[in-house]
Design a protein around this nucleic acid. Structure first.
Lengths: 342, 342
DNA sequence: AAGCTTGTTGTAATCGATTACATAGAGGTA
DNA sequence: TACCTCTATGTAATCGATTACAACAAGCTT
């Protein structure tokens, strides 16, 4: 009894109207009379009709699909953002297509290919690795395809972006440690070319200068957000003859690696040295010691980015063409404490 | 200078052939002569032509898109699987559409709507929450849409699934603890209706019976994979007058919660009690103490599931119609040790 | 009554590809 | 030469919706 899926035609026949009327009843109910509308809806129910998206997409030249470009899908950091994105898009009846940019820098033509081939109405980019020129070229080539940056962004690009207050976060941490009496600070950075790393590092240097704290060049250690790089940094630190009393790591994961290595070497955190992270990932609370860190609403960032995208798609005013900076919060826990009396 | 995107027609005109030939040159190169093929390719390059997917989808009634149904996108556990999926699908030129089933049980019509509306060629389900009847109904209604389960699955469903050897993992843990002299075991389960929970719990009970260890009813504590439920279990345990010397938690996160609470209560892990997890998430290694757990190749599971899907789509023999069980590995670390002498 | 507006509906064109069918020419065979 | 086969290509139908345009009726205005 395998009958092929019902078409508008079938619905029209059953409802006793034309296909145009069916389409109108479904997409623009105000355009038809009360009577026909109910007749059509009844026929739809009866036939079990469902619109063929491919046909609609072709005709209307839209897809109701948003493409998200994620630097690394395997990184749990992004899953919360995706979750926020997905939920918000779903409520507006948009689909979420996901692509892993696999860390590589995407050229303009790479992105162009995604837009053209991926058949998306808009692009949400979580990966700040592309150059400004490339992005602007893409925006030029596909002016009808909105681009929205989330989490990461590209310096100087004039389009909308949603991001956390990275500098504010670092300032909160620095002030927190300063209040506990720390005067000598170290910092483990993220990847050198990552925009989050750069902002966090810059805020670190600036704030400490404002406070009048001590920072030495070799107290700024390059990392890459990974646990391993946090451990490696700790190894390096253990060799130093003069060490700061407080370390601000650019990510929770690096802080975990650092604390773990410190602890194994017999150091007490926070007794001997305070260590802080950034992100407030789930595990921070049960870590031993619990990690002092900066909380950012990743879910809400995703949601916000999705809203921004929907606004642009609907040509709504979208005051936020420039950039939304989401507030962050200090979560003080056990990994930071008063500076040790010598 | 805004000219609309080039069409097959344009390419055909420039290459001096018909649209049919262009299409053939692009999709079935063997069907045209060497000369026309190069002419067409040249014209494509010259015009910058890119196929309009919507049109192709409509005509061929396919989408080159696979829909993944994830129980909870925000759960990092799934990001690795998605990553494996995405990478494998991308190599075969398929897109990945992601939907969060938000924990709710999906009915047959929910899934049907996703298939019909989401315009996907296949469905990879990471969420074992649907009933067998529902799934079979979907498979009946959409026989041309392959379903593949990954990670979780539905008991009794005859379609393909890719999953970890959950029972084997629990056995490895039980044996490991047994070898360290433990004789009294407790278990913290996942959600009662989750298939992974059920399999792990069942393996736990069975193996301990085989070994001759002691398990009491109140040593099996219901959890839900969350950190908080691990902590809650620990609180309960601390009230018990007789406690087992070893706890097997059904997830790493619960083990973290448990250890954290134990430690704060003054218990030493593993001196006073051994605790193990399941999953080997990234943090296990730097946790204090490092967590003994079971490693599963989540990335490879995703990859495998994607391959299985691609095989089915290509009508390849796909010997693996029934179910692939991926091996798991014991990772013995510091959270488990010899039973304490009394 | 003629003319205009408004609301509702139908006819048929359209989106941009793929592909069934027809055709022409080259080469082979009897 | 007549006939058949095979390859390469073109013509036009087709996928299933949306929508521009036309048509018609009802209600108003003058």
């Amino acid at each position: 009894m395998k009958t092929s899926a019902p078409k508008v035609k079938d619905v029209a026949r059953i409802a006793g109207v034309s296909t145009a009327t069916v389409s109108r009843a479904l997409n623009d109910p105000d355009k038809v009379s009360e009577a026909t509308r109910t007749a059509v809806l009844e026929a739809v129910k009866q036939t079990g009709y469902r619109v063929n998206q491919a046909a609609r997409n072709l005709r209307t030249n839209t897809t109701r699909t948003i493409l998200a470009l994620v630097p690394n899908l395997a990184n749990p950091f992004f899953s919360n953002i995706l979750s926020g994105l997905e939920r918000e898009l779903a409520t507006a009846n948009y689909n979420l297509l996901v692509t892993d940019s696999a860390g590589g820098k995407l050229s303009a033509s790479d992105i162009g290919r995604l837009i053209a081939a991926g058949q998306a109405d808009g692009l949400i980019i979580l990966d700040g690795n592309s150059s400004r020129a490339d992005i602007e070229q893409v925006q030029d080539e596909y002016p009808e395809c909105p681009l929205v940056y989330a989490c990461e962004w590209v310096e100087g690009f004039a389009g909308p972006s949603v991001r956390a207050d990275n500098e504010g976060g670092i300032r909160l941490l620095a002030d927190h440690l300063w209040d506990h009496g720390h005067r000598c600070f170290g910092h483990v950075t993220g990847p050198a070319d990552n925009i989050l790393s750069r902002y966090r590092r810059h805020a670190f240097e600036t704030r400490l200068q404002e406070l009048g704290g001590t920072v030495k060049d070799n107290w700024i250690i390059p990392g890459d957000f990974s646990i391993a790089s946090g451990s490696a940094a700790a190894e390096k630190i253990l060799q130093m003859t003069d060490q700061p009393t407080a370390w601000i790591c650019a990510s929770d994961t690096m802080a975990f690696g650092m604390i773990s290595t410190f602890t194994r070497a017999g150091l007490d955190v926070p007794g001997d040295v305070s260590v802080t992270g950034f992100d407030n990932i789930e595990m921070t609370e049960v870590f031993n010691p619990p990690l002092t860190t900066i909380h950012q609403h990743r879910n809400k960032m995703g949601q916000q980015a999705a809203r921004c995208m929907l606004d642009r798609l609907a040509n709504r005013p979208a005051a936020k063409t420039q950039g939304v900076v989401m507030p962050v919060y200090l979560i003080a826990r056990g990994s930071s404490g008063p500076v040790r009396e010598r």
